[in-house]
Every structure is written in C-alpha cells, then in structure tokens.
Simulated scan of single mutants.
Amino acid sequence: MSRICKDGFEREFIEEKKEMYGIAYTQNILSGRWKYLILWFLKTKEHRYSEIKAFLWDISQGSLTKQLRELETDGLIKREVFPEVPPRVEYSLTSKGEALIPIIDLMEEFGKKFGEKE
C-alpha cells in the first residue's frame, strides 16, 4: 500500500485505486491485533480502561493504551474523563465506530461458521 503518514494515503493512490481505496482505508484504521475486539466489546455500552484490560486479559498495558489512542485518533472511539477524585475515564463508540459494528458482527459470524472446522 501507499500510506505516507498517519493522516492518510497519497492523493495519487486514492485517484488511481478508487475501486480498492475503501477497503484499504478500512483495513488501515482497523490495523492492530486488538482493535476489532475493543470495538466489539464497546458495542453495547461504554467501559473503563480496567474493564477493557480485564476483557483482553492477554494484552499489555502499553499495547492497550496504544490501540485505544489510535482508535480515538481515527475517530472510532471517544474517551471521556470525568472530573472526580480519582479521575474516571470511560471509552465509548462514536457514530463512526458504530458504523463498523455490522462489519465486526459479520466477522464474528464468519469465525463461528468456519473457525472451528479447521
């Protein structure tokens, strides 16, 4: 692929590969081992960092923080800090993140149908 920076693709790539740009864009914002699972976990309600960490028990703190920051930067999740002592932080899906849920649900169905047969 022709990604030049965290902000997107080169204009030439977008214009020359219009038929596959949508797939490349979606793949790009979902790249990362844990992003699909984080979005799936947030699909029904907001969660705190510790809840996400407990759900993804095998992820390191650094990896989780990185994945959450990237999802936030790409506009898929929202991070809300509540002015309490100690501070409470909750993560939830944005409308852009919610738009990906049908794709993630299809991935879940596909995995259930074909995953255990191999």
Rank of each mutant, 00 (worst) to 15 (best):
L30W: 03
S2G: 14
G115A: 03
E80A: 08
K66I: 02
F13I: 06
R11G: 03
Y49L: 05
F110L: 10
R88A: 11
Y91S: 01
I14A: 09
L68W: 01
I38M: 06
F9R: 01
V85D: 14
A99K: 12
R79C: 13
I38Y: 03
P86S: 04
V81G: 01
L71S: 00
S50N: 12
R3P: 03
L100I: 03
I29T: 00
Y25A: 11
E70L: 11
T44F: 11
K18C: 04
K6A: 13
F55L: 04
L37V: 06
I77Q: 00
E10T: 12
L100W: 06
I77N: 01
G75T: 04
P83W: 01
L56T: 03
L68H: 02
K43V: 04
K6S: 14
R33I: 09
L76M: 03
E46L: 02
L42F: 06
R88C: 07
I77P: 00
G8Y: 03
S60P: 02
E118S: 15
W57E: 12
N28C: 11
E16V: 02
K6V: 12
R48T: 12
P87C: 00
F9A: 02
L30A: 05
K35A: 06
A24C: 14
S31G: 08
E109I: 15
E84I: 08
I52S: 06
V89Q: 00
I103F: 13
Q61Y: 10
F9N: 00
I23Q: 07
K112I: 08
I59N: 00
G62M: 10
K66N: 09
E109H: 11
L106K: 14
T65C: 11
I101H: 05
F41Q: 11
E109P: 05
K117E: 13
F13N: 07
Q67A: 15
I101N: 02
S63L: 09
E15P: 05
E15A: 08
L71E: 02
Y21L: 08
I59T: 00
M107T: 15
Y49H: 06
K112W: 10
S92L: 09
S60C: 02
W57D: 13
M107Q: 15
Q27F: 11
M1N: 09
K96R: 14
K117S: 13
E84W: 02
K43I: 01
R11M: 11
I4P: 04
E116C: 07
M20R: 14
K18A: 10
L39F: 03
L76G: 00
E80L: 09
G111Y: 14
P102Q: 02
P102R: 00
D58M: 13
S2C: 08
E70C: 07
S50L: 08
T44K: 14
L100C: 02
Q27I: 09
L42A: 06
V85K: 15
I38P: 04
P86R: 07
A24D: 04
S63V: 08
I14Y: 04
L100S: 01
P86H: 07
L106C: 10
S92G: 13
